[in-house]
Design a protein around this nucleic acid. Structure first.
Length: 318
DNA sequence: AACCGTCACAACCGCATGCGA
DNA sequence: CTCGCATGCGGTTGTGACGGT
């Protein structure tokens, strides 16, 4: 699942991030923000390229990254959005707070793609079957249901209120298996329209107005709410977790206090040589789990001098 | 127990885009 | 307008986990 750490020609580490590297990156970005990804690893004491740091932060360490299994609602949303937008993962991810484009992309390729293809096949088979039915009528039952597809409306907005959809889906099923959704066949172009009428909570318009996605996620992840434009917004809730558990792909939500200006203050006064020797009183939010920080912050105001930098010198961590 | 195929996902790579000089 | 740099994006790869034989 993870790559074996290795080094490239330039000495930059590649492969799996270690706990210590994560700590360094979190500690640095939490304190100073991502002012410049290319320069950041040097000051954060990481033998990584900036690109790798950015990716690690954006896809894994960022406090508002929701981890854990995709809910059914999320999956259906991704399928719908992919059908509409194609492989525009970042756009899809933007509509799913807490989920990264990489995560969505992986989930698509490993799970949802097949499901979508199977559904398409089922649809084609149904059409073929339907052609036969025209020759031999009355072999199936056609049910017309109102499709409340508003929560995943076609204007990319998630607001049910923004949609006045009155479209209908014609559902044909074999009478003997009419109760089984697996056997339902859909005649409209939206293979997943049936979900609108069968996912109960989603059928409730107020669900998308009042309920938030934290209801469908596990633990306490970023709270998702709908803004006036009908788009999702997320706000962080204070939740603690350990980096160890983060490595085990658990939910995480911490508040980041990016002291952007603070970095430049420190930077202006610091040289590469003394940067790490300056005592630092943690200015991070108290909501940041101490486990995520560099060692000893829990016991001391300052970090312990354990850090060997890229130049082989030992410095105070902060 | 060993082997093999598949799955899941973190991470890398190359290209595209945006922006300031 | 062009150039260079930083960042973002999507495709792809590599590897451990896991189940089947």
């Amino acid at each position: 699942m993870v790559r074996t750490p290795s080094c490239d020609k330039s000495g930059m580490r590649k492969g799996t991030w270690t706990l210590e590297e994560d700590r360094k990156l979190i500690a640095y970005v939490t304190r100073y923000g991502s002012w410049n990804w290319r320069q950041l690893p040097r000051f954060a004491g990481l033998a990584r390229c900036g690109k790798s740091c950015r990716l690690r932060w954006m896809n894994y360490l960022r406090p508002d990254v929701k981890r854990g299994n995709f809910t059914q609602q999320e999956e259906e949303f991704i399928i719908r959005m992919h059908k509409k937008l194609g492989n525009r993962w970042s756009t899809i991810a933007a509509e799913l707070p807490g989920r990264t484009d990489n995560e969505i992309k992986n989930h698509w390729h490993t799970t949802l793609k097949k499901r979508s293809q199977q559904n398409t096949l089922t649809k084609e088979e149904a059409r073929a079957s339907k052609s036969k039915d025209k020759v031999l009528p009355n072999k199936g039952v056609t049910v017309t249901l109102p499709a409340t597809s508003s929560q995943f409306s076609d204007n990319s907005s998630l607001s049910p209120a923004s949609s006045t959809s009155s479209e209908f889906s014609n559902i044909t099923s074999d009478p003997s298996t009419a109760a089984s959704m697996e056997n339902l066949v859909f005649e409209d172009d939206d293979e997943f329209g049936f979900l609108d009428s069968y996912i109960d909570p989603m059928n409730n318009e107020s669900f998308w107005k009042e309920l938030t996605l934290d209801d469908i996620s596990f633990n306490n992840v970023p709270i998702v709410s709908e803004d006036t434009n009908g788009c999702f917004q997320s706000t962080s809730s204070s939740n603690s977790n350990t980096l160890d558990s983060l490595h085990k792909s658990t939910s995480e939500s911490i508040v980041v206090d990016n002291d952007f200006g603070g970095f430049f203050d420190a930077y202006a006064e610091a040289t590469v040589d003394n940067f790490w020797t300056q005592p630092y009183v943690a200015g991070m939010s108290s909501n940041v789990p101490t486990e995520l920080l560099a060692p000893s912050v829990a016991e001391s105001e300052y970090f312990t001098p354990i850090y060997d930098d890229l130049w082989g010198q030992t410095h105070l961590y902060y």
